[in-house]
């Protein structure tokens, strides 16, 4: 079963109450205040707000741009978290070996954490500059083969790579620590039974890594969503031609650059529903497969 042992009725509430109070004041109350706008036509400086019922929702649901942005956002959350976890997992498996480079690499791979996401955007924009960046020689030979400013596919590749870079530290550490906690004796015993490295990866390392993988998935999905704002803002502003306009960025632009508070709040409400759904899925399907016993 689980560790749940104590049966006090109110004690857990008091224990969690500082957290709940902070959450209430700075998360749920602001979200609630914003939801109020979703049912009104709200002026930025207040005054004259009119109740319009579900009209804002009807309009947003009928808006193709909204659905396109939502689709991009969901695909991005899946692919961005998947790709960054895969890369971090490969690096963690490599760093788990006692090779000479391992201690240095373990240190280096945490460095990106200290760089703000907006700076990451600026840096990678240059690195993938079609004329001056690392792929420029390719363009010299085959003109126009790489241009993330025009070709949406290239733009996405650039964003995914920047995201992987900034996401490596956390996932890498957490997976590495998980790998290191696997007792050496398990490896030896399996090897003596004739299990090769792939077999041991599949049968021993990955199953024992499930608690860490679960944490990594939940937090990476969340980080890719909130991190997308900084990347899009500095790298593409939603372009080319709106191809990378994701919901978090769109909400920010609509609400806080263009003062369409009601439109932004309505989209936030929709995003909350999606986010709640994804979180629920993670707990329903993924957490069941996590093996906590050692």
């Amino acid at each position: 079963m689980s560790n749940a042992f104590f049966r006090n009725r109110w004690l857990p509430f008091w224990l969690a109450s500082p957290q709940l109070l902070v959450m209430f004041l700075f998360f749920y109350l602001p979200v609630f205040l914003a939801f109020f706008w979703a049912f009104h036509l709200e002026r930025p400086f207040g005054g004259g707000s009119q109740f319009v019922g579900w009209a804002n929702f009807q309009r947003v649901l009928a808006d193709q741009e909204f659905w396109a942005a939502l689709r991009r956002t969901v695909v991005y959350m899946l692919l961005a978290s998947g790709s960054s976890i895969l890369v971090a997992l490969i690096l963690a498996l490599a760093a788990d070996r006692a090779v000479r480079l391992s201690p240095l690499a373990r240190n280096l791979l945490i460095w990106p954490k200290a760089v703000a996401i907006a700076s990451v955007g600026v840096i990678f924009l240059f690195i993938f500059n079609p004329f001056l960046g690392v792929l420029a020689p390719l363009n010299e030979v085959f003109p126009g083969i790489w241009n993330p400013r025009i070709n949406p596919l290239h733009t996405w590749i650039m964003i995914y790579i920047a995201n992987i870079w900034s996401a490596i530290p956390f996932t890498f550490i957490i997976l590495l620590t998980g790998l290191q906690a696997i007792p050496e004796t398990l490896h030896k015993a399996a090897a003596m039974d004739g299990a090769g490295p792939w077999r041991r990866l599949r049968d021993i390392q990955l199953p024992l890594l499930t608690p860490q993988l679960f944490v990594a998935v939940v937090l990476e999905v969340a980080d890719s969503l909130s991190g997308s704002f900084g990347l899009i803002d500095t790298m593409t502003q939603g372009g080319p031609g709106g191809a990378t306009n994701m919901l978090v960025y769109k909400i920010y632009v609509d609400g806080f650059k263009a003062y369409d508070l009601s439109g932004a709040a309505t989209q936030t409400a929709m995003l909350m529903v999606v986010v709640a759904g994804i979180t629920a899925l993670q707990y329903l399907f993924l957490e069941k497969r996590v093996k906590y016993e050692r």
């Binding site: 998360f27 937090l219 969340a222 909130s226 920010y252 986010v275």
Partner: peptide, 8 residues
């Protein structure tokens, strides 16, 4: 975890 403070 999922709704960044930028949106609030």
């Amino acid at each position: 975890i999922m709704l960044p403070i930028e949106l609030r």
